[in-house]
């Protein structure tokens, strides 16, 4: 059975792009969230194997959503997928509980590699 993924990004274009990349990489996308609040709710309901998480989103940003998901499941596997490549933000995301960080615009191989590494 394929590992399952929840994609969280406020841009429908980026959700679509990630869906294509992850599906081609052998993963099954089981949900798409448009902000951090939706991601936390969908994570609790769907319990995916992996979450891809944007940082800048309306209502609840990605780093706060990572903290909330980790409260629900300390073993959650989350990979940040954001255009914000600043060191301080990467550190904050990893400290919050993210397993890896991919900076947009990303290469397909880099996303799949990060997903596979997070799934261990």
């Amino acid at each position: 059975m394929a590992d399952t993924v929840l994609i969280c990004d406020d841009a429908v274009f980026m959700r679509n792009t990630l869906k294509k990349i992850l599906t081609a990489g052998g993963l099954e996308v089981v949900g798409e969230a448009g902000n951090g609040l939706e991601a936390v709710e969908m994570y609790s309901r769907l319990r995916p194997s992996l979450v891809t998480m944007d940082i800048v989103m309306p209502d609840m940003g990605g780093i706060e959503a990572v903290r909330e998901i980790i409260k629900v499941d300390p073993e959650a596997r989350i990979v940040m997928c954001s255009a914000m490549g600043q060191q301080a933000l990467m550190v904050e995301a990893i400290e919050a509980g993210a397993r890896d960080f991919v900076v947009k615009p990303f290469q397909q191989s880099r996303v799949v590699e990060a997903a596979q590494r997070a799934l261990g």
């Binding site: 255009a83 490549g85 947009k104």
Partner: peptide
């Protein structure tokens, strides 16, 4: 349409973020 608007917004987001990074 929605997807076209989203793609342009995302391009703006990526270039602005790279600029600020």
């Amino acid at each position: 349409n929605l997807m076209e608007r989203s793609s342009i917004e995302e391009a703006g987001n990526v270039v602005a973020s790279a600029y600020l990074n």
